[in-house]
Design a protein around this nucleic acid. Structure first.
Lengths: 343, 343
DNA sequence: AATCAATTCCAAAGCGCTTTGGATGACCTA
DNA sequence: TAGGTCATCCAAAGCGCTTTGGAATTGATT
């Protein structure tokens, strides 16, 4: 069923039917009701493509998901973020189009989305230090919003981020206050902006408390369980093992716990652990009482909100950029306790 | 830059330029080369919407991701599956459009995709027992392919699945051969078809070996770490604890391990564990030697292949349905060993 | 009865492509 | 030289919608 058929069926012109369906005022309430009823009866929906052609809008937002060629990793937070953004799109009649892309093809994909007029805007995932995508999108004139930030970029842009710096600084201080002096950091890949900021927060807190920043106490890598395990095992076996570990993801934290327990130590007693928790639906941090003490911020909520920001910017085509900084919660669980007293 | 501008620029008609770009034979090699060069220079790409309107194809595949309202869960395998499918789409010039949808809205979404002519076909995720979507899509005449199968459905359809039944049957037999007689199953939600089949494989093997099927040894739920932990803890604390546990996901298996070790037991020694492993990029099963003995099948590979099957069916519009059954590998890791001898 | 302003509707153009049905030459053949 | 065949290109219609610029109808006003 298309507009033409529907309007013939109703004995009206396409114009009138279109207007009735799109809420224009030049249609009598009676006619509108009749049209709406018929549309429902025939399950009529305007063709996305035709509507897009006519209006010049795509009614779609692009998400370009980088999959690093080196690691073949899909960021595990991606599913929940997308779910959040999807909720927003659904409410606004937008579609989400997804491109899975190897690092080196990214630029071509963005150019393609623009020149094919396939989307009205894009969400940038996984911003890195000095991320070139910001300038690219800026130059292309394609509206965009970034999940995270890109340190080192001078151009202004819309973003939504967790205050990673403050979260990790607070976590470090929390451990210091419990008496810990050997505090390790098992971080994500530090080309990623979020990981960079977390390290900043960590080192700033150490320095603030007069503790040395010891490279031997810092690891950086793709946040897998095995990476958490190996990093923790390595450091726990060293001459001066950490009494506390700060960890960038719940998945790595599971590996950290494995390393701790494998050594006959007890987490929260012999070794304290704080992890960042993205509140992923399939990776809950325990039940009522969290297993891990964690800096927590829902990535799904971030998806919802960032999508709203972008749609808002597109709808109002205002150039004043929006930014939003979520403050992570520091939730105390069972994985932290006072530093063990030496005896 | 659009076709009209490009063709004016070249002093050719739109027809010729379009044909040159789309590989039609009625264009001299010289002209074609000239057109292609200009297209590249101006970064010209045909508008997706206009092309779609003209050809009647959407050049897009829909993925409808159900997010259960009850659990608010996004299936963790989703990211990797999508990454695989995305690779295929990229190669074929297709786009992937994603709808995140609460269970009860699913039907409306499929109808919408069809009547708006937004996609050429859809991938069905997470099929359940007697899944009503199969009939719906069949009736709508929207090409589709299912990731998994839907037991109880009589209509024929295209699908790709892991042989869950055989995988879990083999795993159970493997444990039996190691001397285990108390073998527990920590399964996914058994409304899901894959979980149903896994239980079938498990019980069939038990019966085959003359072992009783004991409901107290079986759990079913959303496959989180906590669910694995609670189920395992519960059963290990029972009067007749299992000496081996079959687990439906690596994430739950991490919880199972936690329960085991928390009780001062050693995994692979006191309690054996076999888990299914979807080979998710961020959740690798250890390094060189797998931590868990596992039935393994790459969900990313499944995504790649299923997308190919669907595109193929659409391109050739052949009604002969394709099906594909992956056989899972049974990989031996460190989590299994001979049943402890009672003394 | 004539005028005016709303109200309600419509015909047709246009969005950017593909594709049908020729038109125009160039080159052979007889 | 006329007729036929290719090779190469083009004008225009059509895909399904929105939207512009009226036209027709109605009711109120003078």
């Amino acid at each position: 069923m298309n507009l033409k058929e529907l309007s013939q069926n109703l004995g009206l012109s396409q114009t009138t039917v279109s207007r009735a369906l799109n809420g224009y005022p030049e249609v009598s309430p009676a006619t509108r009701a009749r049209v709406e009823q018929a549309a429902k009866a025939f399950n009529y929906r305007p063709s996305t493509r035709a509507k897009g052609l006519a209006t010049g809008k795509a009614l779609a937002i692009g998400h370009v998901i980088p999959v690093s060629t080196k690691h073949e990793m899909v960021n595990p937070i991606f599913g929940d973020f997308i779910a959040g953004a999807g909720e927003t799109y659904g409410r606004h009649g937008y579609e989400m189009i997804l491109s899975i892309v190897a690092d080196e093809e990214e630029e071509q994909i963005y150019r393609g989305l623009k020149s094919r007029r396939a989307v009205d805007g894009v969400i940038v995932h996984g911003p890195r230090m000095n991320d070139p995508r910001i300038k690219l999108l800026h130059d292309l004139g394609l509206p965009f919003a970034v999940h995270g930030r890109a340190s080192g970029t001078t151009l202004p842009y819309s973003w939504l981020d967790v205050n990673n710096r403050s979260a990790f600084s607070r976590a470090t201080t929390f451990l210091f206050d419990l008496g810990h002096r050997q505090i390790a950091l098992i971080n994500g890949l530090e080309v990623m902006d979020f990981a960079h900021r977390r390290r900043e927060g960590y080192t700033a807190a150490l320095l603030d408390k007069g503790l040395p920043v010891n490279p031997a106490m810092m690891r950086s890598g793709e946040m897998t369980e095995v990476f958490g395990y190996r990093s923790a095992a390595d450091m726990l076996d060293s001459a001066l093992p950490p009494t506390a570990i700060l960890c960038a993801s719940l998945i790595s934290a599971l590996g950290v716990r494995r390393a701790i327990e494998e050594r006959g130590l007890r987490m929260g007693h012999d070794v304290s652990v704080i992890t960042h928790d993205d509140a992923l639906s399939y990776l809950q941090n325990g039940g009522d009482v969290p297993i891990f003490t964690a800096t927590r911020s829902s990535v799904r909520q971030a998806g919802r909100k960032l999508a709203e920001m972008l749609l808002d910017a597109i709808a109002n085509s205002h150039q004043d950029l929006q930014t939003h900084l979520f403050e992570a919660e520091l939730m105390v669980g069972q994985s932290t306790g006072p530093a063990p007293t030496k005896d």
